[in-house]
């Protein structure tokens, strides 16, 4: 009985150590588990995959370094998918602290696929006023972004000459760590009927399933699992995919801890 009661009083530092080892060991022993992509991620993949070459995809960076481990892998995977299909990318962001992350990923992947700035991709940067930015871009992108992030007028960039409103953008992909994804749906989708895919942290992803069910968004990439699925679909297994084994191991560990904690709690209660 004593041992069972001890289960409810395990030192939290021991739990942290076991948790740390559970994350570490699958990496050290290179263990990987088979995965079947989630339907909502497959839906997002298919929407992008069926776009004809030359279509414009707008990507919004609405997260920062705190969400990087989850969201950055999905940004890389989507960029690889878009560039491999010769789609054009316009990137912007509503989170100023995330702008450097967007630039880093865009330049990395563009280099990988030999894409040229101004012809294949453009970085617009950040403008304040989330809702006002989204609404005004529906009328004319230049009313918000007269120039790109580096101060080049938009009309001097070949790719931007025929891009003026959401009508010229095939799909908008929002990478989110907060409520900006809701704004994209409420302003760009509801007012301008813009097709939207949302990708974001696992904390915000559950709130988007109603949008998926009502077809206000055409795909959903949620958390590290969603990123891993997309990496799998574009046949470029990277950070997220290899992170799924530690993720699965930790989930099993947490379930075990919950069961043990409850056994200990019940034993203590019975004694009282």
């Amino acid at each position: 009985m004593k041992y069972i009661e001890k289960l409810a009083k395990i030192d939290r530092r021991i739990i942290y150590l076991i948790l740390f080892l559970t994350v570490l060991l699958p990496y050290l022993f290179k263990i990987s588990l088979p995965m079947k992509p989630l339907p909502e991620v497959v839906q997002a993949y298919r929407e992008i995959d069926r776009l004809p070459a030359g279509s414009v995809v707008m990507i919004s960076i609405d997260y920062d370094a705190a969400s990087m481990p989850e969201v950055q892998p999905m940004l890389y995977a989507i960029l690889r998918h878009c560039f491999s299909k010769d789609l054009k990318i316009i990137m912007l962001g509503h989170w100023p602290l995330g702008i450097p992350l967007g630039i880093a990923a865009l330049e990395d992947v563009a280099k990988e696929y030999g894409k040229k700035y101004g012809e294949d991709y453009v970085f617009l940067g950040y403008r304040p006023g989330v809702a006002a930015v989204m609404i005004n871009m529906g009328k004319e992108i230049r009313s918000v972004f007269r120039e790109d992030y580096w101060g080049t007028p938009l009309d001097s960039l070949p790719m931007m000459r025929n891009v003026h409103t959401y009508d010229d953008i095939a799909i908008l992909v929002g990478f989110e760590a907060g409520s900006t994804g809701d704004y994209w749906v409420q302003y760009a989708q509801a007012r301008y009927n813009q097709k939207i895919i949302l990708g974001g942290t696992a904390v915000v992803a559950p709130d988007w399933y109603p949008y998926l069910q009502s077809r206000q968004i055409v795909g959903l990439i949620g958390g590290l699992r969603g990123a891993a699925d997309y990496e799998n679909l574009v046949h470029h297994k990277a950070l997220a995919y290899y992170g799924m084994t530690p993720q699965a191991a930790v989930h099993i560990l947490i379930v075990i801890f919950i069961i043990l904690g409850n056994i200990g709690y019940l034993a203590l209660r019975r004694r009282k």
Partner: peptide
């Protein structure tokens, strides 16, 4: 899952 993903990112 989100919190564990952050730990995985740092450990990696």
């Amino acid at each position: 899952m989100a919190r564990i993903s952050l730990l995985i990112g740092r450990v990696y």
